[in-house]
Design a protein around this nucleic acid. Structure first.
Lengths: 239, 239
DNA sequence: GAGTGGTCTAGACCACGCA
DNA sequence: GCGTGGTCTAGACCACTCT
């Protein structure tokens, strides 16, 4: 099939074809892809090669397979996105689901740290979302979110945003968040923290600095979360 | 091969056989397993079925495969264990490697919280390790570690412990840490924190509460880490 | 050259969802 | 009953390592 040094396995090439088509929106979230056999015929490879690609994309959570039905584009449903990227829980385990407190949204020129963190050019604009989220009815999380405005045209006109922004990004703007890079630190509550989530100034706050990356590879969100740390932990399993 | 409701794929059964043999120490860390073809013949299955099992265990980081050489038991080498389970870094990215400050080790009866967190019986004993670790030469981490004593016979007589305990657990006691469950919170530095890692009392501290699980499934370590949070973050990628 | 894992194919049969 | 993915096999050839 080819000569040595530039050797690239067939399934790699098929993988790239499928990812490219996905990114171009040839299939929409929730839709079924062609069956293994049909795609194999179309691309002139064996079913096993397509299967290997679909299996890999399923492991990456890009696709979902259902025996007897077909292969589908994975959806960032509310609940799914919650459990995948939202890690807050009570000590000992019970997962928590946040509800919305208040939010403001505006579009403005990107500031230097935003340009740097989001890999934006000099004249880029960002959407800034500030919101407070509640856990069990109590203000618990302050979030300051910066989005590259070109990825989310008109998001500021939507009005009330859903609890899980990631399912909104996908459904309305075709932006599928694939991975996030988070940096956690402990800080002391500021006077703003006190005003917005009611903690005493100087009490300990868990700060989560997150960059979210979408498919295809691009930094699609910068989110700074300040979380009250009384009776609340960030729970994660490493494997 | 079998009737419906209790259907278990062949590769599942092979998987369980291999894991059992691994846990029984039939092969030691760093050693090669039988080749796909040989194990397939021995078990009376096809090479493809063994391949599927080896691939799965490789994805779980239990095995390592090397084309032309063979399939090996993954080693928790110092560096590998570092990067896998040690998540502290400078803000923005540079990974850090801790060095040892001081440590004490003793064996004693398990206290109720230890029995509860480690699933131990009424008369169980634990090994307690208290140590201070340095980052870039500065005391930065206090760790209080509790181990089920029966898993680590004689560990208190070893003397100086290595920087990465997990490679010690594996090499000396056959305990391979597979996953860890961590809960992070922010707290204020106590007077003990001040004495041991030099931070001002009342400054913010990142607390990591970790349970480590070994192969076969058993809670093999409880570790409480208190980390100074100035110019230091816990960095993690979610996928 | 012998032995190992890596890729690719072709085909059989099973389990599941749906009409 | 058909079409889907899931399992399993057998065999070919390639790429890599070691002797």
């Amino acid at each position: 099939m080819n000569e040595t040094p530039g050797f690239r396995p067939l399934y790699r090439q098929v993988y790239e074809i499928v990812v490219r088509r996905l990114a171009q929106g040839e299939w929409r979230p929730g839709e079924a892809l062609p069956s293994e056999l049909n795609l194999a015929k179309e691309l002139g490879v064996s079913q096993g090669t397509v299967r290997k690609v679909f299996d890999a994309l399923t492991a990456e959570k890009v696709l979902e397979r259902h025996q007897g039905k077909g292969t589908f584009i994975a959806e960032n449903t509310q609940e799914r996105a919650q459990f995948r990227f939202f890690r807050l829980a009570h000590p000992g385990g019970k997962r928590l689901t946040p509800t919305l407190g208040s939010e403001t949204i505006r579009v403005r020129a990107a500031r230097p740290p935003e340009r740097e963190r989001l890999d934006l050019g000099r004249d880029a604009r960002v959407v800034e979302i500030d919101r407070v989220r509640l856990l069990e009815g109590v203000p618990a999380i302050r979030e300051i979110i910066a989005l590259p405005a070109d990825l989310y045209p008109g998001i500021e006109k939507i009005g009330a945003l859903p609890n899980s922004l990631y399912s909104l990004y996908q459904a309305k703007f075709g932006v599928t968040i694939m991975t996030t890079h988070e940096e956690l630190s402990a800080q002391l509550a500021t006077i703003d923290d006190h005003r917005q989530i009611g903690v005493a100034t100087g009490s300990p706050i868990l700060v989560i600095d997150r960059i979210a990356v979408c498919l295809p590879e691009r930094k699609a969100e910068w989110r700074l979360s300040r979380v009250r740390s009384d009776n609340l932990v960030y729970a994660i399993t490493l494997t």
